[in-house]
């Protein structure tokens, strides 16, 4: 993968430890416990990033959390973050409204590959909030749709009321050039969609392994079944890209918290090509 960046790719800020004020211009409730923000820099400057990168979001006096960027990186106006309420900081963030100002440090991390995978078929494998870090890549692929082969999205949620970005999934499903498979774990009687695991949806999708690149964002325990299903469909580990999660405090490989084997996930990840980490993946509590 020549030309694929090894670490923080673009826009490394001048002082990466100092939050830059951004104003919330839109708050959108997505699914229960999940909301999105549109953010605009207060200083009027720009903000360049690549799909798959993340920011550290700071709430004045409360704390900071690492959140992937989930908007369109060609959108010069705003950045979009989708946040799940998981702890005290995200809980406090959920009470903010349009006009409030938060701090942003970033962008950090190794992005998804785009140019190096021109010409391939693509399959996206994700579930629940895992669609958020993949959405910028999906947008980018759709911007350059003629550069890619088939595009398949396999998405799973727990029920029918927690399907993230449901409107967009419908939109993408309606396109003649994308295949969208949505599966749920449980559904009310009469539900006519697919019920079952994401891995089962991958097995059922028409993936031709030879020149397919796969992008996986699942919890760490659910990543392996997804990878196994991809292997079964003939997608080898060198063509599978995963994004992972660790505790992050700095974003620049300095605080040590996000180490995964020899890597600093904030800098060498969060996107990995699966064969880079396959030997570490099933070691417990690494």
């Amino acid at each position: 993968m020549d030309g694929y960046p090894k670490g923080n790719a673009v826009g490394a800020p001048v002082d990466p430890m100092i939050p830059r004020p951004f104003r919330i211009t839109k708050v959108k409730s997505e699914v229960p416990g999940v909301f999105s923000w549109h953010l605009v820099p207060v200083d009027g400057g720009g903000f360049a990033y690549r799909p798959g990168q993340f920011n550290m979001l700071y709430l004045f006096g409360v704390g900071e959390v690492a959140i992937s960027i989930s908007g369109d990186c060609r959108d010069g106006e705003k950045i979009v973050h989708t946040i799940r309420i998981a702890g005290s900081v995200t809980k406090a963030m959920s009470s903010l409204s349009v006009g409030d100002v938060i701090g942003v440090r970033g962008p950090f991390g190794r992005p998804w590959p785009v140019e190096p995978i021109y010409g391939s078929d693509l399959v996206f494998v994700t579930g629940t909030i895992g669609l958020a870090p993949l959405r910028p890549l999906i947008y980018e692929v759709l911007h350059q749709r003629d550069k890619f082969g088939r595009v398949i999205i396999c998405y799973g949620s727990r029920g029918t009321d927690d399907i993230l970005y449901e409107d967009e999934l419908h939109l993408w499903r309606g396109r003649f050039d994308t295949n969208v498979h949505v599966t749920v774990h449980s559904a009310p009687s009469g539900y006519r969609g697919r019920i079952g695991s994401v891995a089962a949806a991958v097995r059922a999708a028409h993936i031709e392994g030879g020149d397919t690149q796969a992008f996986v964002c699942r919890s760490e325990v659910m990543t392996k079944p997804a990878v196994d299903a991809l292997h079964e469909r003939g997608v080898s580990s060198e063509r599978i890209w995963v994004t992972l999660e660790r505790n992050m405090k700095c974003g620049i490989g300095l605080c040590g918290h996000c180490q995964f084997g020899p890597t600093f996930m904030c800098r060498d990840g969060p996107v990995y090509r699966f064969d880079e980490i396959e030997h570490l993946f099933e070691i417990r509590e690494l």
Binding site: D15, I18, P21, R23, G61, G99, I102, G103
Partner: peptide
Amino acid sequence: RGFRILRSV
């Protein structure tokens, strides 16, 4: 509705 940085490292 926001904050101002007074001093940095």
